[in-house]
Nucleic acid binder design. Structure first.
Lengths: 196, 196
DNA sequence: TGACATAGTAAACGTTCGTACACTATAATA
DNA sequence: TATTATAGTGTACGAACGTTTACTATGTCA
């Protein structure tokens, strides 16, 4: 029986990953054979069958290859204070896609750039991007996009005894009790800050 | 001459988008024809040629369709304090992918879950996910993942007169002057917080 | 040693692919 | 009204597709 070296699969997966990132589609079997350095596309066919069993790849009803966990661009390490594993060691790590992780409802979610410091105590800074889902019904404690005095702002949503209040996360600003009807643009489901 | 209704393209694009999200690949021309309700795939062929000109789709050297701006899952609205356009109006908005926006170097970037409150004044809370690029060389003011007393922590990086310091973003904790060699696990390039 | 599982080669199949060409129907324009 | 550009139908063709089968070579294990 022939046993393959330890990183046999990893190199192959990396090749496909590169192809996928470069071409934005999965290779055909003959293209995969070329990637792997095989002369026969059946060799690729058999190899990929194993990658499928490992979950890196799958295929649709027509046999075309689709990205499995390949798709996920960022590697997952442990948590920071727990003495997480050294970033140096390159294993077959778990990966994830930020898009898929953060966005539940692609059609009802949009992105908003934050200006002003009214939510700074909630860790939402000017310049941050805020993901807003307008299909979510706000509950007390949620951060919402609301229209106050014909201006859109970011506030904590509070419902007490039938009345609705908007609370800024900054002691400098007062609690807001909306005069008339309150227009909600959606609930903040995530906050993203880019440094570089 | 036949002029198409205003949202002619938008509906078609939405159909392809749905297909792409569902199948994780672009449709063939015959599949696209079926999506559009055409009997002839040549009709899809001509229509998609126009979508290509608009940048929503393109194709590789073998003619296979590839996602253009389709790919991007989240719609971009204006900024929040500027009285941004109502989220209700559904135009052909700009879209973006968070993965592509945040990650410059997929191979050297990883994700870390934050525990502890040492960076809370920088708006990085316990439970946040931090994107770390280990190929970036830290500069003063950057937030880095560093090993202090054989523990991995998140600190501001400061270089003054040849000496390197690590500063927590929380007044409760003291400035750290590393005794021996300083091990840096990478530079924080983004912070992500998920609420829902 | 002999039996066996595996990695890879090679060729063949029916199907689907992208693309091209000829054609019809419709609506706008001059 | 005649002209013209466009939306869509239908057919055809060579190339590439996924999949199957047969075969070789090689290393493992009893």
């Amino acid at each position: 029986m022939v046993t393959m070296p330890r990183d046999y699969f990893k190199d192959r997966i990396e090749k496909i990953k590169e192809f996928y990132l470069r071409n934005k589609r999965m290779p055909s079997y003959s293209e995969a054979a070329f990637l792997f350095g095989f002369r026969s596309k059946n060799a690729a066919y058999k190899l990929i069958r194993k990658l499928k069993e490992l979950g890196f790849i799958y295929s649709d009803e027509k046999g075309r290859l689709l990205p499995g966990t390949l798709n996920n661009p960022v590697k997952l390490l442990g948590s920071i204070s727990a003495g997480f594993p050294s970033p140096a060691e390159e294993e077959l790590q778990d990966t994830m896609s930020l898009d898929e992780y953060l966005i539940n409802n692609p059609t009802s979610t949009y992105l908003l750039k934050v200006e002003g410091d009214s939510m700074i105590d909630a860790g939402i800074h000017p310049g941050d991007l805020v993901l807003v889902d307008k299909s979510v019904i706000p509950k007390t404690g949620d951060i919402v996009v609301a229209q106050v005095d014909s201006e859109w702002t970011l506030k904590y949503f509070e419902k007490r005894g039938g009345a609705v209040y908007l609370r800024p996360a900054n002691k400098k600003y007062p609690l807001i009790k909306p005069r008339e009807e309150l227009i909600i643009g959606g609930v903040v489901i995530a906050n993203v800050r880019k440094y570089k």
